[in-house]
Design a protein around this nucleic acid. Structure first.
Lengths: 192, 192
DNA sequence: TCAAAATATGGAGACCATCTCCATTTGTCA
DNA sequence: TGACAAATGGAGATGGTCTCCATATTTTGA
């Protein structure tokens, strides 16, 4: 997609170091508590180098988010290929909750980024949304899910779950949201 | 709740000016784009005065949010007093969407604040959640809503709606989320 | 009504994170 | 290996945040 420029050897090394460090910090949820310049020191890199590779904090986040999303999308495709549509959708959503539970820091970071609406996550988010859209469409197709509601609503609900990750009773509530959404999706159309 | 200290006359005037200005900026969604010192200038107040009254940006936001929440809670109580429980809940949720639609800037500001999780909105959020809890409890009581899901899930969904206010198709998706949640709430318990 | 005491003001400047710039180092290619 | 291109890193400029205190305003009480 982005025209690959042949990156020099040391450049790639530094870039990788930066990304590795970012991933850790990202996952620990300290992404916004850390002075940006310190990423550089942490990764054993000069400030200038950091800024050359990732002009903004958000650019760095985007790069990390990318890998994250790829994993989730693979998972979605895999489920879709091996399970009945409705079940694939349900499993994916429950898995998402597991995933967020297992990566609180990541959830926190993403929530902040979403809210700031730097737009930095646009590409990654679109990919994730596409995966959800496919799952929902398949379920609609075989008639197990109503057709008057689209995947956007599901994304919103997921967004809410991720953003609220710090609630005391998060896990139970997150599961409850998924339950509501799934049961709602299986309801017949309301008349109005 | 907070011990009221008899505020001096000019102090109250300045404080009010600050709040009025903040409310505008808040509603316009520019809350985080504006240099904090400029609030002072905008409100015709010195920087020092601003910081005396509201030590942080978040403190100022909290003060504004307070009034906002009070209105919504009143609305909830009023609905609860005049409509059957299930209908009161449904109406309130739909009204919330209307409200957010009518105050995009506010939604944006709140989403950012929530994500930053300054904790500044804790009190206001608790009040709002209490209102929703009451609505749900009443509906559970008279048997129109399942009892295995609590209000926290509804809050999460609302949170998601508010946080995603910048999606192109926001309105339709927000309505869809509410529909899913309401239909989900009216479903019988799932077995597992 | 008028000091004196208490309270509040405002803005100059300290502080600190972000980001730029370029002299130096490192890698690549012939 | 030499010469050119690519990349580095960190010193310092920039600009927003917040503190401090000399001055101004309000209140008190005699």
């Amino acid at each position: 997609m982005t025209a690959d420029k042949p990156l020099r050897a040391d450049a790639r090394r530094k870039r990788e170091a930066l990304l590795a460090t970012a991933r850790e910090v990202f996952d620990a949820g300290d992404f916004f508590d850390l002075r940006f310049d310190d990423f550089a020191r942490l990764a054993g890199v000069g400030t200038g180098t950091l800024y050359r590779h990732f002009p903004t904090r958000e650019a760095l986040a985007e790069a990390v988010y990318h890998g994250e999303v790829a994993t989730l999308c693979d998972r979605a495709r895999q489920l879709q290929a091996t399970l009945p549509a409705a079940e694939a959708l349900a499993t994916f959503l429950r898995d998402m909750v597991d995933h967020i539970a297992a990566h609180q820091g990541l959830a926190r970071t993403l929530a902040t980024l979403m809210a700031t609406r730097s737009g930095a996550l646009a590409e990654g988010s679109r990919a994730l949304e596409q995966a959800v859209t496919d799952l929902v469409a398949a379920a609609v197709q075989d008639g197990t899910v109503r057709d008057d509601v689209d995947a956007g609503a599901v994304m919103m609900a997921l967004h809410g779950i991720g953003a609220a990750h710090d609630r005391p009773n998060w896990r139970a509530e997150a599961d409850a949201v998924i339950t509501l959404v799934l049961d709602g999706l299986h309801s017949p159309h309301a008349d109005r």
